[in-house]
Amino acid sequence: DDYAITMVVCEGMKDKLTLCASLLYPLGKKDISIQMINQGASQISIMIGTRRKDKETVIKTIYDNFIAED
């Protein structure tokens, strides 16, 4: 019941070897507990499971670290 899933999708992901670390490290710095990780077979998506209370922080952190930089 206390679960949120955030999906990160990008065709360029398969070319970035350290993507998982780049996604998870900033979340860990914010004390967000990662409950589940699943990378799709096509390597263009990563599903991250966290506690529901952290869902907005997860999205903002990923956005700030990947989208806002561009």
Rank of each mutant, 00 (worst) to 15 (best):
K55N: 13
T61P: 05
K14W: 02
D2E: 15
N65W: 02
I44Q: 12
K29N: 13
I67P: 01
D15V: 06
G12Y: 07
G49I: 07
T57L: 14
I59D: 04
V58G: 07
D70L: 11
Q39V: 11
N38G: 08
E11V: 05
I67R: 07
I5V: 14
L23K: 05
Y25S: 12
S33T: 14
S22C: 09
T6M: 06
C10W: 04
F66T: 10
E69A: 08
C10I: 00
D70F: 11
L27E: 10
T50S: 11
A4Q: 09
P26H: 01
N38Q: 12
L23M: 14
G49L: 03
N65S: 10
G12S: 12
D31G: 01
V8N: 00
Y63T: 14
S42Y: 05
L17K: 15
E69K: 15
S22W: 01
D64K: 11
I67L: 09
I34S: 12
I59G: 00
K14A: 02
L23S: 06
P26T: 06
V58H: 07
C10G: 13
I32K: 05
Q39F: 01
D64T: 10
T61L: 03
G12F: 08
I34K: 14
A68F: 00
D64C: 01
G28I: 02
K53L: 01
E56H: 09
Q43F: 07
S22M: 11
K60P: 00
V9P: 00
K14L: 02
G28N: 10
K53M: 00
N38C: 10
Q43D: 05
G12K: 09
D54A: 05
L23G: 07
G40W: 01
V8L: 08
I62V: 13
L19K: 05
D70R: 11
K30C: 08
A4C: 13
R52K: 15
D1N: 12
L23P: 03
L23A: 06
K60R: 14
I46S: 06
D54R: 09
K30Q: 13
D31F: 03
V58Y: 06
T6G: 06
L24M: 12
A41E: 14
M47L: 15
D1Y: 04
D15C: 05
D70G: 13
M7T: 14
M13N: 02
I44T: 13
Y3A: 04
I46Q: 06
I62L: 15
L27R: 12
R52H: 12
I67D: 02
E69M: 07
A21F: 11
I44K: 14
V9Y: 06
D31I: 00
K60I: 07
T18R: 15
L17Q: 14
K16F: 05
I67K: 11
T18D: 15
I62D: 07
T6D: 04
S22P: 00
D15H: 12
Q35M: 12
K55D: 11
M7D: 04
N38Y: 11
I5D: 03
I59M: 09
I59V: 13
E69C: 07
T6K: 04
Q35E: 10
K14N: 08
N38V: 13
I46C: 09
K53N: 01
D54K: 08
Q35K: 15
D1V: 02
A4G: 10
S33M: 12
